[in-house]
Nucleic acid binder design. Structure first.
Length: 288
DNA sequence: GAGTGAATACTCGAGGTGAA
DNA sequence: TTCACCTCGAGTATTCACTC
């Protein structure tokens, strides 16, 4: 049948050509606001190449927040109480937001607006904010579904960072990475194995000082500019290359390789660069 | 009690809208 | 332009009533 995107495999040349045709009403997404049918293009052409990430998971530091938060939250709920672990994660996500805003002046994380507003209010009134899972203290209308827990957990699972099933827990490899790379930085201000931080996250409500201090700085240090060698290797393997169970059967690894090479030469993803990528793919004999 | 199927709830991944 | 919040459809899991 004809679809919005029809692919023609040209096995002789090892390439594949995409062209547009009229929308098949059977393929149309019912009631979708996707008037141009971009979702169909993404599903047909993008998803087979990038198996783990979504259009929302554009922040590497979002994954950093998720990994460290899940590690800490698991320690607050040793009895597998999923709800309390989730609540602890929400508190951690709030804490990270304040630290990134105050220390690094970061934007572009979930909840930025409320974090900025409450920080300004706190500076005029004692310098402390309240962190908790209660709706009034969350940094989004529904932090659980619209924050990192809702948007990053599934891609992290596909990337081999989060175990399948429930409750949400890191894979052994991801947990070891957090312990090696991030926990020592937190421990400098929060005590051995960041025990004071774990204790704080386990509380129903936390009063958090957003004036410059060691604990705030320790949390912010996880989000310093640049990546260490171990971080770069880890994220390259799990996020860029799709992780150990790469659902694209190696296509994502090859795509990352040629994209990386082309972007190293060019600042922007222009039409010319895309044409070059297609030529690179043809040369590599990708087939379908 | 076991098996089946419908109804319901939940999760995930898209894009749109409106305020600032 | 950015950000927060929303809707929507598809897929999956769970619950429950019904039949044998």
């Amino acid at each position: 049948m004809a679809t919005a995107v029809t692919k023609r495999a040209t096995r002789g040349t090892g390439g594949m050509t995409f062209f547009l045709s009229a929308m098949d009403p059977r393929a149309k997404v019912k009631g979708s606001r996707d008037g141009l049918g971009a979702q169909g293009v993404w599903a047909a052409a993008g998803r087979p190449l990038i198996g783990n990430l979504t259009t929302v998971t554009s922040s590497l530091r979002g994954f950093t927040t998720l990994l460290v938060g899940l590690r800490l939250a698991a320690q607050t709920a040793a009895d597998d109480a999923a709800d309390s672990a989730a609540n602890a994660f929400l508190v951690w996500e709030q804490m990270v937001g304040y630290a990134r805003h105050v220390v690094h002046e970061h934007r572009g994380f979930f909840g930025y607006q409320r974090v900025a507003a409450r920080t300004a209010a706190a500076k005029a009134d004692g310098g402390r904010v309240r962190l908790s899972a209660h709706s009034g203290e969350q940094i989004l209308g529904n932090q659980r579904t619209d924050g990192l827990l809702g948007n990053y957990t599934a891609p992290a699972r596909v990337s081999g960072l989060v175990r399948p099933g429930f409750p949400v827990r890191l894979t052994p490899e991801a947990a070891a990475f957090v312990d090696d790379v991030y926990m020592p930085r937190l421990a400098q201000a929060w005590g051995r194995e960041a025990r004071d931080l774990v204790r704080a996250l386990g509380q129903d409500s936390v009063s958090f000082d957003v004036r410059p201090n060691q604990r705030l700085a320790a949390v912010a240090s996880l989000f310093d500019a640049g990546l260490g060698a171990a971080e770069a290797r880890f994220y390259q393997r799990h996020l860029v290359q799709g992780g150990p169970s790469d659902p694209t059967s190696g296509r994502q690894v090859r795509f990352a390789a040629i994209l990386g090479a082309r972007l190293a030469e060019s600042e922007q993803l222009s039409q010319a660069v895309i044409a070059q990528l297609a030529a690179d793919a043809d040369e590599g004999g990708w087939g379908t």
